[in-house]
Design a binder for these strands. Structure first.
Lengths: 229, 229
DNA sequence: TTGCAATCTTGACATCATCAAGATTAGCTG
DNA sequence: CAGCTAATCTTGATGATGTCAAGATTGCAA
């Protein structure tokens, strides 16, 4: 019990808190704080610090200051917690893409390329979470919230391709091939960078790195557009 | 001890064998068979059957019919065994690409596309091994044999780009961007297929699937070549 | 034939996920 | 406002895993 301090500390601190802010923490806050949310936050830092292979349910519980069996009342499994983390990840992922697209202005091709930059922003900022979402068997693929969040991200890409290409990939097989190619290019670049397979790019300073990434993305996005029209 | 049978069985069978085939099994075969090789084989089927997250060192030992601590004499760690498996994987990976390239004939662009098909052959045939090699923190990146095997695979791609592009990526930054883009596209497509993110393609019959994959690959390889020259 | 060193086994330890049982407490009901 | 019920949390146990330590076995060389 090396981390017993944390547990004890939480036990003594929280009752005092709850006494004076019962209205502030609403939602599903029961008699020991908003544990569900706390576990999600703990899980995310656990992922960031220990990596996907070092992730531990008990570690999350310790971070949240509860006993090792407490998470079971909010997540059936370790997998269920990871599924929820992946779902949350997809939402942030989509937000990253939208942010970059907004900054890119109105040109459809610039917006498509920008979505790719947002894709890479997320992957490089949260590598373990990214791998959890795309390169592991942990998340439950049948989970509805996860599926929906994933499809929402895919929709951003499809819409961007639709604007840049003039055809909706959902209705045009050739445009769908473009979309798959664009997604593959960006996704592969993200994975190779995370895997340390592209040290010459990975070691660049942020500004240079973005330039290098942009030139790789342009290999497809730009030529793909102009060659087809 | 549910698998004690296997252990006992091996113990009684092998002495008889060794008595009459001591010359047949050479290499690093010591007094109980060629355990190192047996563990590698066991590890590969363990990966194939249980997946990367279900992989277990004790499971490998059971498959090889030895005690749970026996592997320690051939691999320092569980990670060391996985590193060796990844190294072996890279060799097969390179062989897959070369096989496809030979079948493609002499046209440089066809050969470059063929290397991509070999890439995908391997990923789809050995998904867990592929993820071990490219999307996990298990293998020891400082391992020399692993690094060499990985670079050898990368060299195949660089050479193929060199032939198709007319410039050596190792000496020309623009050609290197082409190589990175080609690698990213194929790598991303492989990962997305493994992650189940492209069901419309993944569910096709083999022949149709290859056609779909080929059309995605062509989005880059062909235009990348003709657009630059 | 003898002895050494490599190989393998047994057993132990800490950690993990999960389950079962009991304690605590929030918030509704009367 | 008192009591009850169900959700929440804790403690403890079980079986599995990776790793370590110590002893047994055996190939091989002197």
């Amino acid at each position: 019990m090396p981390t017993a301090n944390a547990t004890r500390g939480a036990k003594k601190r929280k009752p005092g808190r709850r006494a004076r802010e019962p209205a502030a923490k609403r939602a599903r806050a029961y008699h020991h704080g908003d544990l569900r949310r706390a576990l999600l936050a703990a899980g995310e830092t656990e992922l960031a610090e220990k990596g996907l292979e070092g992730f531990t349910l008990r570690g999350c519980a310790r971070r949240a200051g509860v006993s090792h069996a407490a998470p079971a009342h909010h997540f059936r499994d370790a997998r269920a917690l990871l599924t929820a983390l992946a779902t949350e990840g997809f939402r942030r992922f989509a937000a990253n893409m939208r942010t970059r697209m907004k900054a890119a202005g109105r040109d459809p091709r610039a917006r498509l390329a920008a979505s790719g930059l947002g894709y890479l922003d997320f992957a490089l900022d949260s590598p373990a979470l990214f791998r959890l979402m795309f390169a592991s068997d942990y998340p439950d693929r049948d989970d509805e919230a996860l599926q929906q969040a994933g499809e929402e991200s895919f929709a951003i890409l499809l819409d961007a391709v639709k604007e840049a290409r003039g055809r909706d990939p959902r209705a045009d097989a050739d445009a769908m091939t473009d979309a798959v190619a664009a997604w593959s290019l960006v996704h592969g670049l993200a994975n190779l960078l995370l895997a340390g397979r592209l040290p010459p790019i990975a070691e660049l300073a942020p500004a240079e790195k973005e330039k290098a990434i942009r030139s790789v993305i342009d290999r497809l996005v730009v030529t793909g557009h102009s060659a087809q029209e």
